[in-house]
Design a protein around this nucleic acid. Structure first.
Lengths: 196, 196
DNA sequence: CGGCGTTTTGAGAGAGCTCAACATCGGTGG
DNA sequence: CCACCGATGTTGAGCTCTCTCAAAACGCCG
């Protein structure tokens, strides 16, 4: 998810990661077989999780009338439900997409550390701000009606076409079906500078 | 933008706001006539802004080929480009949509205060986490292909139909044209429990 | 070779977008 | 008071695009 080409950001995020890694360094690791749920909506928040391997999806299950909404997919190195740090209960479900591993630390300890270790608080806020930029951008890209425009906007952010075998992930990122994306790419192969 | 019906969040955000208000309490206020720009892409970040009145839009101007992308619209009580706290230069433009007012504090001072005042750091992170949830949710709602589903998902988050005169804002929030939204609402007036 | 997942292309239907016309409401000024 | 104006609400018709379902080619690996 290389959303931000800015060098500085990359560097600072790396520093941030080091601090987060440090905080989670002595955490116990929990294995999650694919499909297993880590927590459910309404569960009291007692732990904070960092994804070590695999992917965890956050799902909001509305009333029976609506299909489940995938709020976020967290990959290695990402914290799970950042807002749960201050929330008494989860507002969504977490489920492993693949065989996954998460690092677990007590929520209580994290919060104490947040107030004591200003470096952690700063790093955490930086991480959140970064993620916020990405999420807002994603929302705006998805509000573009035409796939061609979404793709242009996504590419203009410094992103590059993924290698073969990863195109479906891009389709999901753009919020379109894979068929539509394949067609658009075929179109571009024919006339690379196609502009309506 | 009442995205989060959870009582606790509302309460904590209120506490957060109090702290942010405190931090910005002695800040000087800058008036921005509608249309005026506050900063441009590439400008060095020297100040942190909090919107007092009006709306400020963050715009990313891609190469000439693409239309401008509206990253975010910040209203009263919201900080402007949160990630700019750690970034050397802005990555987007800021422009006043209406006649607006912003509170201005030196970036340097804010960062010093962040490391010294753990309450501020915590409050800021909480604010960011909250905004992040909202942005991710918005992105997922906009990835739903059918307007009816977007509206359902939006309503399921505890939102209610806006009063007359505000429907276009809802259309923008959902990422559809106002005509489409008007039609959907007319459809629902006829058969309230319409499910496909 | 025989699966399995990805890539590619086709055809049809559905949904939203665009353009357009018109109604409604509130405010402004003659 | 009324004419006018702008913004919001409402509906219609046609077009375009994506989604859906379907089928097949391709590539990889056991």
């Amino acid at each position: 998810m290389a959303f931000y080409p800015l060098r500085t950001f990359t560097r600072m995020i790396r520093i941030m990661s080091r601090i987060l890694d440090q905080v989670f360094s002595e955490a116990r690791t929990q294995a999650l077989p694919a499909g297993q749920r880590l927590f459910l909506t309404g569960d009291p928040v007692q732990s904070i999780f960092l994804v070590r391997a695999g992917r965890i999806v956050l799902v909001r299950r509305n009333r029976e009338s609506g299909a489940p909404l995938f709020l976020h997919i967290a990959g290695p190195g990402m914290m799970l439900a950042e807002a749960s740090v201050w929330s008494p209960a989860y507002h969504c479900d977490a489920q492993a997409l693949d065989d996954a591993e998460v690092a677990v630390i007590p929520r209580r300890w994290f919060r104490t550390e947040m107030t004591r270790n200003s470096e952690l608080a700063n790093a955490f806020a930086m991480d959140l701000a970064h993620a916020l930029q990405g999420a807002r951008l994603k929302a705006e890209i998805r509000s573009l009606p035409r796939l061609a425009d979404r793709l242009d906007a996504w590419l203009a952010e410094g992103n590059a076409f993924p290698e073969r075998g990863r195109l479906q992930e891009l389709a999901a990122e753009l919020g379109v079906t894979r068929e539509a994306l394949y067609r658009e790419m075929a179109r571009r192969r024919k006339k690379p500078a196609g502009r309506s």
